[in-house]
């Protein structure tokens, strides 16, 4: 006889993740959240502190009745077993994590127990140090911007270069909200619209050499809108052996984070393979057909060749945002 009972499913544990460097305002925000009645409906809450800054968690002012705080001092302590153990030990119904700005966010995501689910990931940054940190610790800034839903730039003043902050965020994350919290306490949300640098409705969508990265990201994020469009751009041909006879890869090296993080951003093109050589720069005109392709392993943009013109490499071979 079949077991009529479903296997007991572990209840989902919401996780709220707060990232950013030291003195970026994480603890202050957590204190405010814990003191906000809208956020506190009596759940047993575990707060994991991975950083020990100047501000301290004010447990007394917290409206959260069952608040448990534990500290992780070493990135290596973050393992699935340990996180699970903490959750069970405190019978936590939700988890708040103040993450260490110098640790990779992936360490946490990889170690997260199955039942844990990140509900919100907020990133905090001090607008007065952000540009220096970004220039010198690019990989860590990039890392935290990638997956956050909201980034709060605090301590802004009339002199803060909002556009520069905006651009840095948008080069990494197009969807997150950006908030600017001024020294006087006022908060403004970023409503700057970034128009695409090419005309998506032109009969032939022409991508300038400098806009390849933006286009490549856009087609990755909003694939369907390109179905049936004709595009023209400059790229490098690659002919890996595994590819079917009638196809080639066209793309460009793409700088993601910094000089140590360059990958090849390539797309599948079909037709006229006899006209291209491996390692050759061409201007490709093609119609985009969105469909499954074995080289993509799923649905993707297949460039059906209309025209191929051999050309010189662009002045900057590596594409960037």
């Amino acid at each position: 006889m079949k077991n009529i009972f479903k296997p007991e499913q572990e209840p989902e544990i919401p996780v709220y993740l707060f990232t950013g460097f030291l003195e970026s305002g994480k603890t202050t925000f957590i204190n405010e959240t814990l003191g906000d009645e809208r956020f506190n409906a009596g759940e047993r809450t575990l707060l994991i502190l991975c950083e020990e800054g100047i501000e301290a968690i004010n447990a007394e002012k917290s409206l959260c009745k069952d608040l448990f705080i534990c500290t992780i001092n070493d990135e290596e302590q973050i393992t699935t077993a340990y996180l699970s153990k903490l959750q069970k030990q405190y019978k936590a119904q939700r988890i708040l994590v103040e993450y260490n700005g110098m640790w990779k966010i992936d360490t946490f995501y990889r170690a997260m127990p199955k039942a844990w689910m990140v509900y919100q990931e907020f990133c905090f940054a001090d607008s007065t140090t952000f540009l220096t940190y970004n220039a010198n610790m690019r990989s860590l800034v990039f890392d935290k911007l990638q997956s956050c839903e909201l980034i709060v730039f605090n301590r802004t003043t009339a002199l803060t270069n909002i556009m520069e902050l905006h651009k840095i965020v948008r080069a990494v994350n197009r969807n997150c909200n950006i908030a600017y919290e001024a020294t006087d306490g006022t908060v403004k949300f970023d409503e700057i619209v970034d128009p695409l640098p090419f005309d998506i409705d032109a009969p032939t969508v022409t991508i300038a050499d400098t806009d390849f990265a933006v286009w490549y990201r856009d087609i990755g994020e909003e694939l369907q809108k390109y179905d049936g469009k004709t595009v023209q751009f400059k790229g490098l041909v690659s002919l890996p052996r595994e590819l079917t006879d009638n196809a080639f890869i066209i793309g460009r090296p793409l700088l993601n984070c910094c000089a140590d993080d360059i990958t090849f951003a390539g797309l599948i093109a079909e037709g006229n393979t006899d006209k291209v050589k491996d390692g050759q720069w061409i201007v490709l005109t093609a119609q985009i057909s969105v469909r499954a392709h074995e080289a993509y392993d799923r649905e993707g943009p297949v460039l059906v060749t209309i025209d191929i013109i051999p050309t010189e490499a662009p002045s900057e071979e590596v594409a960037s945002f």
Partner: peptide
Amino acid sequence: ITEMNSGCICC
């Protein structure tokens, strides 16, 4: 003055 462009932590 000479500037060296490898200030990033990963480089």
